[in-house]
Design a protein around this nucleic acid. Structure first.
Length: 298
DNA sequence: CCAGGTCAAGGGAGT
DNA sequence: ACTCCCTTGACCTGG
């Protein structure tokens, strides 16, 4: 089992090394593509430093921020003025990832909804997901859910089953790379999707399920934790499964918080039930939470 | 230079 | 009808 963290290395962030420089709409409108290219280049240069930090600190799992390219649904990455430099850096990053046996992936935002009844929403989602997988392709990472693009279904519209059928239909419109990289995560709300629901989609599209332990606790459905985990693990074929783990802030740090809020650190041991899988730790202290966990439980 | 208000997107839930 | 939340706080402005 390898553990990792999401998007931000707080140690490097203190040295102003950051991969999510962005801009508001007004700035994008006035400064345009050239400024987007400049921010993207800075982000990608710093991403290489974060990847190197992970290697130096023996962290083998890392989620890359979706803010690497500001406003990327509005243009093609290859049209950026700095693309050829960015492309070279991506190739170096990909080599570092493969040489160190690191596992990287994306988790695009909640606005990516493949089952929306609105065509514009679906079109924009497809573009954005394909951009994410194109970045992983550019890094030279194998087209597999080992290097994943993970999302939630995103909408139920009071009728999960017709929404899931729409999702499966729209799945066919994704690029070949996205189809192989896309994974689905169980939701934390009772009216949204649990592992059993997602299994229906897996059967039709072979999409793997990322089991989120905290979301399971918020929305268990009818199955036990062990049963749900097992079902999710079975959807990964030859690839080592990926999961998400976090502790409830409400339970351990601040009782006034909502149940779904993430704590700074982990306060429970990850229940493996004897299985081997990788874990993205979702904790506010980021890489420090991983380091603390490993000191505490290993 | 810094504190504080504001910031693309879809949908669900709580008020 | 409105606000907050989510994958992540960072951007921008006015003092």
């Amino acid at each position: 089992m390898e553990l990792g963290y999401a998007c931000i290395c707080t140690t490097l962030q203190k040295q102003k090394i950051t991969t999510n420089r962005g801009m508001i709409k007004k700035t994008f409108m006035s400064k345009g593509l050239d400024y987007a290219s400049e921010l993207s280049l800075l982000n990608v240069q710093d991403l290489e430093k974060v990847i190197q930090w992970n290697i130096d600190n023996d962290i083998k799992v890392f989620r890359i921020t979706s803010n690497l390219f500001p406003w990327m649904s509005e243009y093609e990455l290859t049209s950026l003025k700095d693309w050829s430099i960015i492309q070279k850096i991506f190739k170096r990053i990909g080599k570092k990832v493969l040489d160190s046996k690191m596992r990287v992936g994306f988790h695009p935002g909640p606005f990516n909804i493949l089952c929306s009844p609105k065509k514009e929403v679906v079109d924009k989602t497809i573009k954005e997901l394909d951009q994410h997988s194109f970045i992983l392709d550019t890094m030279g990472l194998p087209i597999s859910n080992k290097y994943k693009v993970n999302i939630h279904i995103g909408g139920a519209y009071g009728d999960k089953h017709s929404a899931m059928d729409r999702w499966i239909e729209n799945f066919q419109l994704l690029s070949n790379s996205t189809k192989k990289r896309l994974t689905l995560e169980n939701d934390d709300k009772p009216n949204m999707y649990n592992v059993q629901d997602l299994l229906y989609i897996h059967e039709k599209t072979n999409t793997s399920i990322v089991f989120d332990f905290h979301h399971y606790d918020c929305n268990p459905g009818n199955l036990s934790k062990k049963e749900s985990l097992e079902l999710a693990l079975c959807t990964w074929g030859d690839v080592k499964p990926m999961t998400h783990f976090s502790s409830s802030r409400k339970k351990y740090e601040d009782s006034s918080c909502k149940v779904v809020a993430h704590a700074d650190y982990l306060y429970d041991e990850i229940p493996t039930f004897g299985y081997d899988f990788d874990v993205v730790v979702e904790a506010k202290a980021k890489e420090q939470a991983v380091i603390h966990y490993l000191e505490k439980y290993h």
